[in-house]
Design a protein around this nucleic acid. Sequence first.
DNA 1: TAATTAATTGTCCAGTCAGTCAACTAATGT
DNA 2: ACATTAGTTGACTGACTGGACAATTAATTA
Lengths: 204, 204
Amino acid sequence: MARPLSPDYDKRKENILQHSAELFAEVGYHKASIDQLAEASNITKSLIYHYFKSKQDILYQCMLNHVELLRSTARGCIDPNQSSEDQLQNILLQFLQIYETAGARHRILVNDLQQLLPEQKTEIIVIQNNITQIFKTLINKVAGSGDQDKNLDTARTFLLLSMINWTHTWFNADGTMTSQELGKLVYDIFVNGVARGSGTSHEP
Amino acid sequence: MARPLSPDYDKRKENILQHSAELFAEVGYHKASIDQLAEASNITKSLIYHYFKSKQDILYQCMLNHVELLRSTARGCIDPNQSSEDQLQNILLQFLQIYETAGARHRILVNDLQQLLPEQKTEIIVIQNNITQIFKTLINKVAGSGDQDKNLDTARTFLLLSMINWTHTWFNADGTMTSQELGKLVYDIFVNGVARGSGTSHEP
DNA sequence: TAATTAATTGTCCAGTCAGTCAACTAATGT
DNA sequence: ACATTAGTTGACTGACTGGACAATTAATTA
């Protein structure tokens, strides 16, 4: 019975989120001012407060969107019709591809999680734990579970995640290696090691 | 011919650096105020400017100290009397041990490198590259160099570094795994993989 | 002691920031 | 037509911050 939300509401909100994520990643959460976020999004500062209730809220929604995308992607990779090896390789490829396009969001998730309210932080971590669990299950199928040694399972899961989560610090997709090749390399090293690994496995 | 620097000068400076690093790591560089740094160091705000010329200078020296320690440690691990395998395993253990005690410095190095002046940032990166090169040389000896495929050498070097550089996000030394055991696990996965890896290799 | 410089403190300031507010315009339903 | 709410803006503010500074005390040497 009054003016409804614009049909572009979500689109505009997403636009702010995207530009904000890039600025946060570039200069850091606290150094990025609301004025800068507004300028980058081509709107006024006040309008930002029409879409978000606080600066922190922007950060929170950036992170939430990102981890939810990762989780749904991970869940989509669970496919009983595929071998565990193929599923693991597939999930690695897809995550690396997301990191390539959503690099800014990934970086702020790494750098600024502590800037969230405890309850927000917890919510993000819960989702991350869901993702970790999916990886762990797959890894245990590929490598064989350490059964009574739960700590080994956990450690090697995090070590695999390390390899893909750290790529933003060095990997350049414009370079001589694609994220596809990188994904295969990560899989190969993790499963077979560099000593007995294929090294340059260039069969498609 | 006048009052010289206190013999404790370096010690007091280091004390400020240590407390600052912890605060930077905990709340983030920009959110940590000089007043907070002073309070944590049990001195006044003004006195900080006696030892450092700016807030940024504190951050810079935190990072510089840290990477210089890492580089000298890495260089100390080069020992022609040892096998490449032993050298690699040794350097992994020592780095993980440093990360355990200097966790705060490691985190700010990861999070806040971008807050430095370009020239300072470059200086830190040069030292990091020195360290990376040491790792790369060792890895090539252990795994065999990809000769014409320089990119493979680089990628797998960073992938190994990923595993130890990411530990601060999940590894808890108070837990059921020591950094020694973690070091061995990292080495074993990287060289042999999880499929043919020893898993729980509990021989001393 | 006189000169010099390190060590330390409390105070002050210019600038910045997140967030508020009043006001206006643009849609929509009744 | 009219009430209601969305969309948007510029002006404003109170709090805070990094850094400057003047002043004081302490240590060292000549």
